[in-house]
Design a protein around this nucleic acid. Sequence first.
DNA 1: CAGTGGTCTAGACCACTTA
DNA 2: AAGTGGTCTAGACCACTGT
Lengths: 241, 241
Amino acid sequence: MNDQPAPSYRPLYQQIKEALLSRIVSGVWPPGTYIPSESALSQEYGVSVGTLRKAVDALANEHVVIRHQGKGTVVATHDSDRSLFQFFHFVRFDGSRSLPVSRVLQRRCRQATLEEAQALEIEEGTVVVHIQRIRVLDDVPALLEDLVVDAKRFPALENEPQTLPNTLYQLYQQKFSQSVAKAEERLLAVVAGQQEQKHLGVEIGSPLLEVRRIARGLQGEALEYRVSRCNTQHHCYLNEL
Amino acid sequence: MNDQPAPSYRPLYQQIKEALLSRIVSGVWPPGTYIPSESALSQEYGVSVGTLRKAVDALANEHVVIRHQGKGTVVATHDSDRSLFQFFHFVRFDGSRSLPVSRVLQRRCRQATLEEAQALEIEEGTVVVHIQRIRVLDDVPALLEDLVVDAKRFPALENEPQTLPNTLYQLYQQKFSQSVAKAEERLLAVVAGQQEQKHLGVEIGSPLLEVRRIARGLQGEALEYRVSRCNTQHHCYLNEL
DNA sequence: CAGTGGTCTAGACCACTTA
DNA sequence: AAGTGGTCTAGACCACTGT
C-alpha cells in the first residue's frame, strides 16, 4: 500500500518515522507505553521539533500511536476505544454500534488450504491454528467466523484459556506481540448452508454477507485470514467514504 | 462526521479551511481551477504560509482539492483518476480494478418513498428523479442500480441527453454544481428477484450484495440515494482498513 | 529560468494534564 | 507550576513543473 517508487530522495521525517516504528516493532516501546516527548526525541535524532512531529503525525494517522494533548503519545493498544471499531463495521441499520459477544465453537491445528495459504502468504499445507466462533449482536447470533493464523507465529494459540477474549487482536498483541495495523476485506453475497442454519438460525439457501479479511501487522505481514458470514436481517456492514 | 463540540477555541487554520471551502462551494473557484498559490493566499489572509498550508492540507485530505508539486493546487473534479475510485469499490477477486460500463434502463420523475425521503433528508412525497441502470464489469452485467435525487436540486435531470456519462458524479458537478465529497454505504445480502434475473442473468433467489449509499456534498448535504445490487460471482467489494 | 508545492528549521506561545 | 502535545510564525532551501 505504501510502496515508495524508487525514492532517490527520502524526506527526513519519513526516515524518522521508520526509526520510531522499528523501535515499536522490536518491542522497545510495547503497546500501551508512552514514548518520549517530542522535544526529547527531536534532540535524540538531532532534528527540529517540527520534523519530528511530522514523523509522529504519520504514525498517528495510521493508528500506530495515539496522541493525548497534555499527557503524551502512547503506542496504540487494541483495547483503546478508538481502535476497537477500526476493524468492526457491523452496526444496526440506524448506524449505531453494538458490542459483539463471542462464543468459540472449535479450535484446532490443521494444514492450510490453498486459499488460506495464499491469503497468509505461506506454503500450502503449513500448519495453522483454526478457530471457529459465533458472534452475537443485540442477542442475535449474527456472525459465523472461521479464522486461521500461522501456527509458528502464534505458538500454542490452540491451548489458550477456554474463554478467548472478545477482541482477539488484543490477545494477539498481548500474548504474541503481533499488532494488527491494517486489513483488506473482500465482501460478497453467499447462501447459508447447514452450519449457518445451525448456528445463525437462518434457513438453508438464505442470503448471507461474507467478509474475507486479511489482517496485517505493522510492516504489512499477513497475520490472520478470517472469513465471516453475517446474517444481515438485523445488522449491516457500514462503510464511510 | 466532523462535528466540533462547541469549540470555545477555534484554530486559525480551521477557520481558513472553511473560508477556502466556502469559496469553492460558492463557485468562486469551480472544480478544475487552480487556486492561488500558498504564498499569495497566506498574504491575503494575513497568516503565515505554514498555517495556510495546514488549511489546504485538511482540504487535500478530504479530496476537496488535489496538490500538484510544481504546478499548484486544483479543486478536485470527478474525472481525475484519483477521485474515480473513491466511491467505486468493486474489483476482480485479485484486487485489480475494472472500469464499469453503464446502460440506463429507466429515467423518470416520481414521489419519494419514505425510505428515500429519510435518506435524502426531505419530506416524503417530494418529487425526485429516479434513474435505473445496469453496470457491466468485464463484459458481465454485474450491478443493477436504482438511484434517486431531489428534483429541485437537479432540475430537469430526467431530460439530460440519452447517453448519461458513466460517472454520474461528473455530471452532477458539471451541470448542477453539486460535488459529491463523501458517502456512507450500508452493505447487506439479499436475494435476486425478477428484475435481477432479467438484467443480471442470475437465477431468482440467488444471493446478491446490496449496497445502499447516501452521497453527500461538500457540506454534508445528502445529494443522492443509491441502491446497487451486485452479482458477486466474478467481482467483489473491496475495503481497505 | 521563475513559480509552485514539499521539507526543514528555531523559536514563541497556547491549551491541556498532572501533581 | 511543570511538562506535554497543538498552534503559529518567518524564513531558508529543495524538488518538481512549466516556459
